[in-house]
Amino acid sequence: MTPTQPLSRDALKAQARRLRKALEAEGNFISHGEALELLAHQMGYRDWNTLSAKTGNRPDTPLAVGGRVRGRYLGQAFEADIIGLRSIAGGNGGWRVSLKLDEAVDTVKFDGFSNLRRRISGTVSKDGRSVERTSDGTPHLQLSLR
């Protein structure tokens, strides 16, 4: 199994707490340390120490490959899986993101023609908005971050 790219250490610890509470609700009691170990194994790492070292002290990122996101593309609402993500260095940063939409969106506003798309890619800043804009000034891609 190939390890997945971890979130921040704080996000991972919060995820372990949620896992522990979910198991506790089903009558399975584990310690926080055991929840951290389970989480590390689930993400493809040998143990929590390996995952924690891989994570480092990077800030929390609201996006991750395999995660879910909602937003608007060319003015149309969507929900999608994140299938690709690359951080952009320099300037204000941001991400190059590739999405697999739950339902296709039509990229054309002309009644006599349609162009339905289920996969889209775009570059968004840290606020989740693309620099590219439509003729009325609306960002092509807008992600709800949080």
Rank of each mutant, 00 (worst) to 15 (best):
M1W: 12
T2I: 14
T2S: 14
T4M: 09
Q5K: 10
L7T: 10
S8P: 02
S8I: 03
S8C: 07
R9C: 09
R9Y: 02
D10E: 13
A14N: 12
Q15A: 13
R18V: 05
R20Q: 14
A22C: 03
L23K: 12
L23Y: 05
E24V: 00
E26H: 11
G27Y: 02
F29G: 07
F29P: 01
F29I: 15
I30V: 14
I30M: 10
I30C: 11
I30N: 06
H32G: 09
E34G: 01
L36K: 11
L36F: 01
L38R: 15
L38D: 06
L39C: 04
L39D: 09
H41Q: 14
H41L: 12
Q42N: 10
M43Q: 12
G44R: 10
Y45P: 02
D47R: 02
W48V: 01
N49V: 00
T50I: 04
L51S: 06
S52F: 00
A53T: 10
K54E: 13
T55F: 00
T55R: 00
P59T: 05
P59F: 02
T61H: 02
T61F: 00
P62D: 03
L63W: 05
G66I: 08
G67R: 02
G67D: 03
V69I: 13
R70A: 13
R70V: 10
R70G: 11
Y73P: 08
Y73I: 12
Y73L: 11
Y73T: 05
L74T: 11
L74R: 15
Q76P: 00
Q76C: 03
F78Y: 08
A80N: 06
A80P: 08
D81G: 11
D81F: 02
D81E: 12
I82F: 04
I83H: 05
I83K: 08
I83D: 07
G84H: 12
S87L: 07
I88A: 04
I88S: 07
G90R: 10
G91A: 11
G93A: 04
G93N: 07
G93R: 08
G94S: 07
G94R: 08
K100H: 13
L101A: 03
L101E: 02
D102L: 04
D102Y: 01
E103V: 02
E103H: 09
E103A: 11
E103C: 01
A104W: 00
A104D: 05
D106R: 05
T107Q: 09
V108L: 14
K109P: 06
K109D: 08
F110G: 00
G112E: 13
N115A: 13
L116P: 09
L116C: 00
R117I: 08
R117A: 12
R118C: 11
R118T: 15
R119E: 14
R119M: 14
R119G: 08
S121W: 06
S121M: 13
K126R: 15
K126W: 06
K126S: 11
D127R: 12
G128K: 06
R129K: 15
V131D: 14
V131W: 13
D136Y: 14
P139Q: 09
H140L: 15
H140I: 12
L141D: 02
R146A: 12
